[in-house]
Amino acid sequence: MRLSRGSQALLRISTGITLAFIYVPLLVIVVYAFSVSRTFEWPPPGFTFDWFDLAFDNTGARDAFVYSVKTGLLATAVALVLGTLASLAVARHRFFGRETVSFLVILPIALPGIVTGIALNSTFTQVLGIDLSLFTIVVAHATFCIVVVYNNVIARLRRLSGSFEEASADLGATPWQTFRLITLPNTRTALVAGALLAFALSFDEIIVTTFTVGAGDQTLPIWIFTNFSRPNQLPIVNAVAVIVILISIIPVYLAYRLTREESTAARGGAPVASGAVTAP
């Protein structure tokens, strides 16, 4: 569409402002993490690396970090298996209720986190009568991470002809052989991208976690949330916040790179399968 120079400039300016709106707060928290001040004082009176040292030495934060990584890895593993199975079924087979599967997979992330959280909490504590623990968090996180793997893998499978798999089966390969030798090599980057996003999603989640975390256990977001109001902890919380930003943004960037290269090759330079990276 040919727009006048004036309206083009206007669009460009509003784009710039919106992007600034997205990134300035993230930069601010990075600056705060290096500020010598123990409050949110701005401009910072000076800069220091001390808070990062203190954050690394803080046993509470360190334990929470390890716990988050453990949760993230386990939840990602479960989501990877379930998401891949579901995407193979939907992409390669026709059956009654096929559309419902996509809807079912999206539901845990489309409904407010508080609904998912309290529903799982009632099931665990009232029906199953089990104590909240690592197991319950992993179940909860895996449930809303399935969609990420599913969307990435199904986008890849749809671009990939199913005839290779059929040929493999016709030549006598077992389903497992076909998966290992044909499907897996062709979907590997989508699986890695899905796993990275699932991990990032789990690592940063707090709402569902609040309802499924065991007594005495803390994920890193829960640690931040319980420490933000303690005045002396503020600088350490800022430093931990920066670590969380890095751990949750870098996987998303890597996942984007992985899926983009594939789709650029497949679609002749058209940018990204946006649906693949943005699960919902």
Partner: peptide
Amino acid sequence: LMPLWSAYLVK
């Protein structure tokens, strides 16, 4: 996309 899901609490 980068900050889409990440660092919700931190934001």
